[in-house]
């Protein structure tokens, strides 16, 4: 079964049409990168898929369960509160600017939702959180507060926080765009290390080398449509004029 299906998603902000009839899907364990110029609708697509933004029309389906569909009047209809809540527990999102809770310690940032949203057992939540911190290379930071951490460390905590809820699919919205090249490296390394967790990942990124290296599939978006989609090799070697003009420089460097 497909983990996520987006069908004919449309979204406008006023007169500006940001997403035009977008359809895509994600298989279990698959890593998909979405690349494209700024303003092409990548982040909006992610925000529609995670229900932070309400789309105008289209379908969002997680594991066969419909979160939203197009009603008879052509407007998007969303599922009930309870159904949405259950569907929501299938996915996580890592933000560009982390959005950690500044008043919670690192450990509490990670454990609070598993404890108070999922109501899981305290002992296992803390054990898993510490394992995650170790995986992120932050085992000595559990009592620190976000303001005491570097941007790269914050983003790694945010990734641990998302993983602590055991999502089946994890979205990354430009996870390194707020970081300098050095910190970008450490965050990308961590994301790469997640590949063996077999969580599906959808990554909106401007890091082309990273996208080429990590993805099973690359989606190239421009002007609110999916221009091209395929394996990294296919997309990065594409003849498509629009893809070429965006990737041109990367193609010669890589």
């Amino acid at each position: 079964m497909k983990l996520l299906e987006l069908n004919h998603v449309e979204k406008s902000f006023g007169d500006l049409c940001v997403l035009k009839d977008i359809s895509m899907s994600v298989e279990e364990g698959e890593i998909v990168s979405i690349i494209g110029p700024s303003g092409s609708g990548k982040s909006t697509l992610l925000r529609c898929a995670t229900m932070l933004e309400t789309m105008d029309s289209g379908e969002v389906i997680y594991l066969g369960r419909k979160a939203a569909w197009t009603g008879q009047d052509g407007r998007a209809v969303y599922a009930g509160k309870k159904e949405l809540k259950e569907i929501q527990s299938q996915y996580g999102l890592v933000f560009q600017n982390f959005n950690l809770f500044p008043h919670f310690s690192v450990l509490k940032n990670i454990t609070d939702a598993p404890l108070h949203v999922q109501k899981r057992d305290k002992e296992s939540v803390y054990r898993e959180a510490r394992e995650l911190l170790k995986k992120m290379g932050l085992e000595d930071k559990e009592d620190a507060y976000p303001y005491q951490l570097s941007g790269g460390q914050c983003q790694r905590v945010a990734i641990a926080r998302a993983l602590a809820l055991n999502p089946k699919i994890l979205f990354f919205d430009e996870p390194t765009s707020a970081l300098d090249p050095e910190l970008t490296g450490e965050v990308l390394k961590v994301i790469k290390s997640l590949a063996d967790l077999h969580i599906a990942m959808v990554i909106v990124t401007h890091e082309m080398a990273f996208a080429k290296d990590i993805s099973d599939r690359v989606i190239f978006m421009a002007g609110g449509v999916i221009v091209e989609e395929g394996t990294p090799q296919q997309v990065f070697a594409s003849d498509n004029e629009r893809t070429q003009s965006f990737l041109g420089r990367y193609g010669t460097i890589l």
Binding site: D112, A113, H116
Partner: peptide
């Protein structure tokens, strides 16, 4: 910042928890 609300929503907090926690 709206990001605090969005993070809480994604993590599954309900409205009450989001506001008071």
């Amino acid at each position: 910042p709206v990001g605090q609300y969005e993070a809480a929503q994604i993590l599954g907090y309900n409205k009450f928890q989001t506001f008071f926690k």
